[in-house]
Design a protein around this nucleic acid. Structure first.
Lengths: 196, 196
DNA sequence: CGCCTTCACGTCAGCCGCTGTCATCACTAG
DNA sequence: CTAGTGATGACAGCGGCTGACGTGAAGGCG
């Protein structure tokens, strides 16, 4: 006789998403989530540092994918080219089968300011980590920060588009387009700066 | 005989910053802040929606300044040029006399993850507002979002540099340099994209 | 002058997020 | 068989935050 069912964190995450989707985030207590899978509130907080985190655990694989892409870039690449490589690696994680789940999750986040705060925080963490990786490649601090932040911005915009109703392109394709648009915008502003 | 001293929100903000700086954010209760200025915890939460907000009220003037700069840009400007105009307007708010206060405030924020989350959230709000202003000028959504987000990123990086020890340039000058570096980075990535 | 409304605040009760502490008990190494 | 190990339960407690209600000074108005 097993004393506990395995996979407590995963079960909690699943139950939390379902409850948040139906009742709303604030109307769901941590104790209710725990009870839904036969655990106690105290155990919930042993697996997740706070109530919001139950929706964000798993972002580490995204960070790692981005980093892998950065590492895969040729040594002579410019900072933004390195970031683009990370972007391709990170976006390739989000295959089409994950779109429905991502939509449900994002819908919950979009309805709660506190969750949006946490999401931005995670993106910032990602940007900081990527910037560190760039500096480790020899990129100076300002360029590294700018390139990393821009890459994460592109990811965020592309991800939002990926979840839109009717969107069928892959996240990688969308991100590539957004990245190109960014270069385009900078190009337009750049020429007018050179010829004022 | 006046029943209450005027300027309760300002007094609370001042006391909060001082207490946060000495004891730390988490070690300071809302009741203590209120008591320090002769008020109750309940009144604290009447002026600030939550404990963190006491450090962020006042960001509205920054948003407005950014918007004013956007509105002041010539109609034929490219999206990033419009954003650069907003950037100049926003950064001009931070005169040298404010540097000490900004440093103290930032020091408190940098020591608490929850406050960092809130700060990022405020920056995102700013970016969204600027993007709306750009779209109102006829910029398409993707370009508006990218340009606004890039502008806020530049602001954030420049602001951090402005607060560094030994830094003596104006925030506007720093932001202008960071903005130029962004265009430069994009230029380098752009040419290699055209000639792969 | 008296009355009445407004408005900023106080008081109180209470929920919930989150934490420290200690006990419990299947499982495992020896 | 015994001594951990590790995930969980039970419980007490603090602090953030809210709703409801009361209170008194300031100001408008007849």
């Amino acid at each position: 006789m097993v004393r506990w069912q395995p996979g407590a964190p995963e079960r909690l995450q699943k139950a939390a998403l379902e409850l948040f989707a139906t009742r709303g985030f604030e109307q769901t207590t941590a104790a209710e989530i725990a009870e839904a899978v036969g655990l106690t509130e105290r155990t919930f907080f042993r697996h997740f540092s706070d109530k919001r985190e139950v929706l964000f655990q798993g972002q580490q694989v995204l960070v790692q994918a981005f980093l892998d892409g950065v590492a895969a870039a040729p040594p002579e690449s410019s900072p933004l080219e390195v970031v683009a490589s990370g972007l391709r690696s990170a976006t390739s994680l989000f295959v089409d089968e994950r779109r429905a789940h991502s939509r449900a999750r994002q819908s919950v986040i979009d309805r709660n300011p506190g969750l949006q705060e946490r999401e931005r925080h995670k993106m910032t963490t990602l940007a900081t980590t990527v910037a560190d990786a760039l500096r480790a490649r020899g990129v100076d601090e300002l360029a590294a920060t700018l390139a990393a932040e821009s890459g994460v911005t592109v990811f965020g915009i592309a991800f939002t588009q990926w979840l839109r109703d009717g969107e069928e392109r892959s996240l990688t394709a969308i991100a590539n387009g957004v990245f190109g648009e960014l270069l385009d915008l900078a190009g337009k502003a750049g020429v007018s700066r050179e010829n004022p």
